[in-house]
Amino acid sequence: MKVVCVGGGPAGLYLAILLKRQDPSREITVHERNPEGSTYGWGVTYWRGLLDRLQAYDPASARAIEEASVRWSEGVAHVRDLTTRHQGDEGFGIGRQRLLDLLADRARILGVRLEYESEITEPPTGADLVVAADGVHSTLRTRRAGHFGTEIVPGRNHYIWLGTTKVFDAFTFAFTETEHGWIWVYGYGFSGEQSTCVVECSPRAFTGLGLDRANEGEQVALLEQLFARVLDGHPLICRPGTAWLNFRTVTNRTWHQGKLVLLGDAAHTTHYSIGAGTTLALEDAMCLADSLRTHADLPDSLADYERRRKSELLAAQSAARHSAQWYENLPRYVNLPPHRMFALLGQRHSPLLPYIPPQLYYGLDKAAGRLEMLRRFKRWLGPRAARALHARSVGRRR
């Protein structure tokens, strides 16, 4: 089989690795339109579950990724002058470029051919399988948008992806109130020297603060002032060409046409606030590799991949929609006491939250939590109580 992957991001590179591991005789080429070593963004996040799956599919790359990652187990929220900190699940951060370098090195070792500064706009005629892993702006998908049934829905809020030399020791949220409304930042470390800062605000705050009219230097200076407390004197870093965006949710009615198949952001996007974009792209690659291994016929393989991934993505897509809406309706929650606001921040994926008064939802959630703790205690106590009663009855008989 001759496979062409269009796009040298995490999805395309990892699929190439998996397909080459399955069958070293496959001729696999990855085409990336940008020069090697150039990437957008800063760091990406993932969680322990992904690392376990990477270990199962390719231990060598999983080990390299884990060793190059930083980790945290707490979340911190700064609201005005108040701060709350909570213990959470173990999370990981890794520089996007570092991740790409590790995957590219692994692919080369396995015999994958990598072609940089190589733009593919039409499926090569000599390929048996063409994978469109060329991102949210996928050229291969856009030229066939009618067939794929592509829908792109822009979000309301504005955001920009920046870096900083401040290394956060926890996943950090900071909410700042201005006369034009709220503006906030998500911050997380991805190396021992730098962190990612995603800044988001409503349209009213965006225009009221003049961010729509300011140049790059003026924007950075204003944001450094607004988030001075969490930055501790460290600068924000803006790569050339970085712009404010509205997140676009991409969906497709179908993911394949003939020998062409969509992968990663070309097939679907989920709002950055759930931190799952890279994870979902890598899981796409795992699923497609599995389908190609278990089905000898290519159309059956692609149909199986699409069916399985669409089903698996339902929960993440729902969570992403509700998470984005939570931030779009931030004034509904931000005036709660910080520990309550942070608790509801953790519940932002809930489809019920928008329809229940926040204070009432918080109380119900706390009560449900106590009830669950009681259930766990009863489950723990049950076998022990049974053994104690049994021992007592035996003693009586004696």
Rank of each mutant, 00 (worst) to 15 (best):
W47N: 02
G264F: 07
I94N: 02
S61T: 15
A16F: 05
V76C: 05
L209N: 11
G41I: 06
T269H: 07
D297G: 02
R398H: 10
V130K: 03
G49V: 06
P357S: 09
A267H: 08
L292G: 13
G233E: 07
R308Q: 12
V6C: 03
F173S: 13
S323E: 01
F92E: 02
L162Y: 07
K259I: 01
D290H: 14
V76S: 05
N215Q: 10
N252Q: 08
G369R: 12
G75Y: 08
L100S: 04
F92M: 05
Y186G: 03
S273I: 06
A16S: 15
A289T: 13
P338S: 06
G208F: 07
A266E: 01
S318M: 06
D232N: 10
Q194H: 14
R384Q: 10
L13A: 07
C238V: 08
Y40H: 15
A214K: 15
D284E: 04
F227P: 15
R392V: 01
G7L: 03
K378W: 11
D300Y: 00
R375M: 02
P123T: 08
L54W: 07
A60K: 10
N157A: 13
Q87K: 15
E372Q: 13
F171S: 10
Q22P: 07
H322A: 05
R376S: 05
S291Q: 10
Q194E: 12
H256W: 14
T269W: 05
L50D: 00
H322N: 14
F168Q: 02
G258W: 02
F190L: 00
P351W: 08
Y355G: 00
L15E: 06
R213Q: 14
D265Y: 09
R156A: 07
K166E: 11
S202P: 09
A319M: 09
F171V: 12
Y327F: 15
E36P: 10
T176Q: 15
P154S: 10
D52T: 11
R106V: 01
T29V: 13
W72R: 00
T164S: 14
E36R: 15
E193H: 14
Q219V: 12
W47S: 08
K310A: 02
D105K: 14
W182T: 10
W72K: 00
Y46R: 00
M1F: 05
G149P: 09
A104C: 08
A289I: 13
G210T: 14
T176C: 13
E218D: 14
T164H: 11
